[in-house]
Amino acid sequence: MRGSRVVAGLVLAYLLLPVAVVVGLSFNAPSNRLSYDFDRFTLANWADPCGPAGLCASVLRSAQIGLLATVLATVLGTLLAFGLTRHRFRGRGPLNALVFLPMATPEVVLGSSLLALFTAGAVPLGFWTVVIAHVMFCVSFVVVVVKARLAGMDPRLEEAAADLYASPWHTFRTVTLPLAMPGIVAGALLAFSLSFDDFIVSNFNAGTMTTFPMFVWGSAQRGIPPQVNVVGTAMFAVAVLAVVITTFRRRAR
């Protein structure tokens, strides 16, 4: 009993240590640009998170790309998941396998081949090429998550709804969609986090535009401004808050 607790504690520490460093460094006033030592406590970084030129613009851009890619990938992925679980058609087997492909392909390959495609098609690189690229690999994750949810659903529930006077549209709206929703939400969250922190594919296809991961990468050459840690800590706080809220809401039911 005690042994397993010790192991659990160690694993948790291993997982959270990097986060603790980020949180700590967000309150650091480094003595020089290339110093990663904790020199002096300060609230100045939190008071002025947009201090470094281009930081907040890149965060905003990543958020916009993330939201757009999430919405598009979730809609497309959910439709695809429904099609793959509910209908039998020619080519269903190969399609099932193809959906996995973007997940299995190394991102470097994905990024470079997309770049080749956009260049060959004379598509100007920038915001939209990154959105298109992100939707492409996010769709696969949404399909996998939503499909798992649909596969576990009792088909009798939809028959019961039809038996209780619900038209096909009503059945979808009042039974199928609410039951599939946890899977769809999980797929959307996954898509957003994948898009938001993607560096490799974005770096290939962004042209002169800079996303947040690209900003961090770029500034790492010259010394990462402590405000990056402020953004990281804030994002971590938002995620923790979301988990706490959903846990409490579930318990209240």
């Binding site: 009792d154 009798r156 019961a160 038996d163 209780l164 038209s167 009503h170 059945t171």
Partner: peptide, 20 residues
């Protein structure tokens, strides 16, 4: 007639209660 158009209701073997 489609199922939702029939004045007939069913008690399913597995009950098929809506869990949500």
């Amino acid at each position: 007639l489609r199922p939702h158009q029939r004045p007939v209701n069913t008690v399913f073997q597995s009950y098929a209660l809506f869990p949500h």
